[in-house]
Design a protein around this nucleic acid. Sequence first.
DNA 1: CGTCCGCTTGAAACCCTTCAAGTTTCGTGG
DNA 2: CCACGAAACTTGAAGGGTTTCAAGCGGACG
Lengths: 260, 260
Amino acid sequence: MNPLESLKKNQSDGDVAECPDRMEVACEQCGLFGFLRLFEQMGIASLSQFLTRQIPMAKGARLFEAEQPFHGIYAVKKGSFKSCALLDASGEQQITGFYLPGELLGLDAIRVGVYGYHAVALEASSVCQLPFMQVEELGEHMAAFQEQVIQVLVDQVRHDQRQTLLVGRRSAEERLGAFLLNLSERLERHGFGTGEGFRLPMLQNDIANYLGLSMETVSRTLRSFREQELVSLQGKWVRILNPTCLRSITQYCATPLPGG
Amino acid sequence: MNPLESLKKNQSDGDVAECPDRMEVACEQCGLFGFLRLFEQMGIASLSQFLTRQIPMAKGARLFEAEQPFHGIYAVKKGSFKSCALLDASGEQQITGFYLPGELLGLDAIRVGVYGYHAVALEASSVCQLPFMQVEELGEHMAAFQEQVIQVLVDQVRHDQRQTLLVGRRSAEERLGAFLLNLSERLERHGFGTGEGFRLPMLQNDIANYLGLSMETVSRTLRSFREQELVSLQGKWVRILNPTCLRSITQYCATPLPGG
DNA sequence: CGTCCGCTTGAAACCCTTCAAGTTTCGTGG
DNA sequence: CCACGAAACTTGAAGGGTTTCAAGCGGACG
């Protein structure tokens, strides 16, 4: 069986039907799929044997930790993660990204050799792992592999630069609006409809930390959005009612997503 | 002549002696040097024939523009540059980075195919260009080349994430202190002593834009640093008098530099 | 020598944070 | 199934850092 087929047959595993709010990505929509297709095209069917699929992760569990030796890259299959950088010795943390089903984690530890942050599951989740040592041994086929790596890293650079602009120059309304639009866009890109709304897997505390705001400001700004009828809110479920208006308030334009 | 030698012989060209404030990097300290050494090791002496050296750039001139097709990567040889992202249709700009002698520009346009920002000379400068189309034609040696690319991109990702933290969560004092320490560190990394101080090649307006502050706050904060005798200031010349104290105020720890 | 541009300085206004208390939600165990 | 407690979220008020507006200064360059 070729790697794509062996991967595809698992795409409908899990409990999507029973638990529609914990989204599971189809393999074709996943950031790892490009890597696997690449090797298949080169006649290397062996890559999938290195791939560990559907590793379950409990809420709050860490996929890897900052400063830990690089041991592989991960794709979120189900659930979601946050990446936390350690700011200083006091233990203060800063969230540098959220990762949805289909997105890649850990690629930026390549060459440096250690991860730059903790990766923490926001809910019961699962991931697929590609151990990097194995892949490096494939040797002569590295060039094409690395093109994929470069693609992901370039996207990440562009995302991070936009995030810097957002956090440095924008008001709370603009930051939060951009955040919601970005989430919605990323979900749709991985095949999840957001017309009927979507669930925020992270705490408001996490959103505040990520956007450089206080939790209270996040709460107040969300209320303001609801009062302006830009979004509807029920618990952690969000529905963007007026994307056009939200976009203009936010000065938002589409961004590449972190992790490909 | 091998590429390294042909490059080295130019390292002392220019007007360093006459104009000590417009720094010129030695080729061995340059981000491009790693690429050239790589090809030399593989017995490809032809790379230097693609390299265009010492292209002069007037103050305010653009090396490349946002959305323009990718045509190569650049190393700052002399002088300095800023990268400006276009925020929206109103023409508002955001400075995403400063580039000192020895640092690389434009690598993150790889794969995307277009540059993501304007690169503008802050003063009379010169650059060395590596046309990327030529390099891609070298084909089978791409893997090692791409490892270099990945290294630079990973450094960039880490820098940008730190910048997001800095701009989103830190006070004006912390941002400006980190900025000065970062500049000083990068200059030393490329072989320039900063014990007797260094020159800020950019406007305070640019610093403010880059750090997400107003120009007035930058001015006031610099004055505060001078009054605390953390730095001495004379025009655009800065000297860090008390790095230890500045570092503790800033909660600064060393960062990778943009552009390798 | 004059003008322009960059920088400085002051005062008022504002947005966001911080602190504090109350309310809701959710998981857990009785 | 309900009750309880902890955690998350909401809401209000006060305070502070930064921005904005406005005016003045000073050096670079033609």
